[in-house]
């Protein structure tokens, strides 16, 4: 495992994530004909959250949010340290289970429905996370990110070999970012039917931890998409920028769907595109 990368990730990821989030808000605003906040607004928001009074519904909830943050960071450290992709997926899953538990423990109707929907989101994306790791194993011969990037530098073009897997991952990217049309469990805006859904009962510094975890997660997700372009850094950055803008565009131009459609469509896309991609590889690679 590469310690330098781990430290870089730990220190820089929140800033990178915050900047991305700031740009996201400006672009979103422009698409909606608004001026939008300053680019550093996410940092101001989080800073302010830590000055708020510490309220608690119960101790368990705060504990679960802390675990969520810790496990997201663990997942990121494994990924950027060049570790095992399956482990990354498992840690992300564990982190989200803790987030769900944080929502459930509050015993509030809004946060309960939000938590159940978050769980459905986990269920919708989980097959993709496993197939993603498996796809790289088939092509690169290893689950470890370090080896995958090495092979990418040697000339294996993952994006040409795994277009289906790539598309599947892009599809669940929206679910993971909790952007419309899949902002079911909670969203960046007030929720019409669920107040703030999963995070309704989370406030003050604890909510700050949640926001930081989200910044880390955005960076991890971008990294996961990025390794499709291993060996071509310029192409990688262009692709990530384009993709993120596409996400913002989708966010602005679609309405929230029901959870049934989310789970069905996500499973269908994963099955038809990512799984078929892997099956074809297993026959011909």
């Amino acid at each position: 495992m590469n310690l330098i990368w781990i430290i870089l990730f730990l220190v820089l990821a929140p800033f990178v994530g915050g900047l991305i989030s700031g740009i996201d808000r400006i672009v979103t605003a422009r698409m909606q004909g608004r001026v939008g906040p300053p680019i550093l607004q996410p940092f101001y928001d989080i800073g302010k959250l830590f000055q708020k009074e510490k309220l608690r519904i119960n101790g368990m909830q705060n504990f679960c949010i802390l675990s969520y943050l810790v496990l997201i960071i663990v997942a990121g450290a494994i990924f950027f340290g060049g570790g095992d992709l399956l482990l990354v997926g498992f840690s992300l899953m564990l982190a989200h289970v803790f987030l769900v538990l944080a929502g459930e423990t509050a015993n509030s109707p809004y946060s309960h429905i939000g938590a159940q929907r978050e769980l459905l989101q986990v269920m919708a994306v989980e097959p993709m996370l496993i197939l993603y790791a498996v796809a790289f194993y088939i092509v690169a011969g290893s689950f470890t990110v370090a080896t995958i990037i090495e092979h990418g530098a040697l000339g294996i073009s993952y994006i040409w070999l795994l277009p289906g897997v790539f598309f599947g991952l892009i599809y669940i990217f929206t679910i993971k970012l909790r952007k419309s049309p899949f902002d079911l469990s909670t969203s960046h805006h007030g929720h019409q039917e669920l107040v703030k859904g999963l995070t309704t009962e989370i406030s003050g510094p604890t909510f700050g931890l949640y926001e930081i975890a989200h910044l880390y997660e955005v960076v991890i997700l971008l990294g996961m998409i990025g390794i499709f372009f291993a060996g071509a850094p310029l192409l990688c950055i262009c692709a990530l920028v384009l993709l993120y803008l596409l996400e913002v565009f989708v966010d602005c131009s679609t309405a929230r769907v029901k959870w049934q459609l989310m789970v069905k469509s996500s499973w269908l896309v994963i099955g038809l595109v990512a799984f078929v991609n892997i099956l074809a590889l297993s026959l011909f690679w």
């Binding site: 009074e53 510490k54 309220l55 608690r56 519904i57 705060n62 509050a106 015993n107 509030s108 109707p109 809004y110 946060s111 107040v195 309704t200 009962e201």
Partner: peptide, 9 residues
């Protein structure tokens, strides 16, 4: 730590 509060209904 923290001030106890009840959930939002």
């Amino acid at each position: 730590k923290g001030t106890p509060t009840s959930q939002y209904i």
